[in-house]
């Protein structure tokens, strides 16, 4: 694979041609907000719409997680229109996400907190109506608990369950605002086929899937 150079925010970095821009930036300590991307995933579905960047020569911002790098690429991560898109995407996600960080097991390790800090915006948003799901928390599993209300529907857990672990227990179900991550028939996760690998919990960017013994 060919090594190439590109510039991200005036910084010259090296990368392998064809790598996705998001990972190149993150590996070089340049943060781009992201929720749904997973490095191992060959075809990102780019559903969170947070990883916007501007690329010289492109008329509109693009998502970095599915943008392959090339030699001489010039990237800007913090332009006004990029930040606006990111702020709106974050607002949309937060309009369905209960903000109760003080009592959340993911407090201080939550990707949403990190993104809000990066964008210098508040987690308590006011512009959009709150449409939290208000579903019961599923604590039937011995290893972890699942709060569907905090889920941002990034699909990371589904991908590791199906493609990495070849188990395929977790899936999206229903549609639109009613969409949830769930097992077959909406069964409690404790009753679903599960190999206890814990990968879904590890990749959850927020406090939706949480290990029961918080040390892990």
């Amino acid at each position: 694979m060919k090594t190439i150079t590109l510039t991200i925010d005036e910084k010259t970095v090296e990368a392998t041609e064809g790598e996705m821009l998001l990972w190149v930036a993150l590996d070089n300590d340049i943060y781009i907000p992201n929720l749904c991307a997973l490095k191992a995933r060959p075809l990102p579905d780019a559903n969170c719409r947070l990883c916007w960047v501007d690329i010289e020569g492109r008329s509109a911002p693009v998502t970095a997680c599915n943008e392959p790098v090339y030699n001489g690429m010039v990237v800007k991560t913090g332009t006004e229109r990029v930040v606006r898109l990111q702020q709106t995407a974050l607002e949309l996600i937060l309009s369905t996400h209960p903000v109760d960080c003080g009592r959340c097991g993911k407090n201080k390790r939550c990707e949403l907190q990190k993104i809000a800090r990066h964008l210098r915006t508040k987690l308590k948003q006011k512009r959009l109506r709150d449409i939290s799901k208000r579903l019961p928390i599923d604590s039937s599993h011995s290893l972890f608990s699942y709060d569907p209300n905090k889920c941002v529907l990034c699909g990371r857990c589904i991908w590791v369950c199906k493609e990495e672990q070849k188990v395929g227990t977790l899936h999206f179900a229903y549609r639109g605002f009613a969409m949830v991550v769930t097992a077959f028939g909406g069964a409690p996760l404790g009753e679903a086929d599960c190999t206890m690998c814990g990968r879904c919990v590890e990749v959850c960017p927020v406090g939706s899937l949480i290990f029961k013994n918080a040390e892990k």
Partner: peptide, 14 residues
Amino acid sequence: AVPAGEVFGVATFY
């Protein structure tokens, strides 16, 4: 030969 959850996902989507 797909996970049952996938069929459930499609059946609940439409």
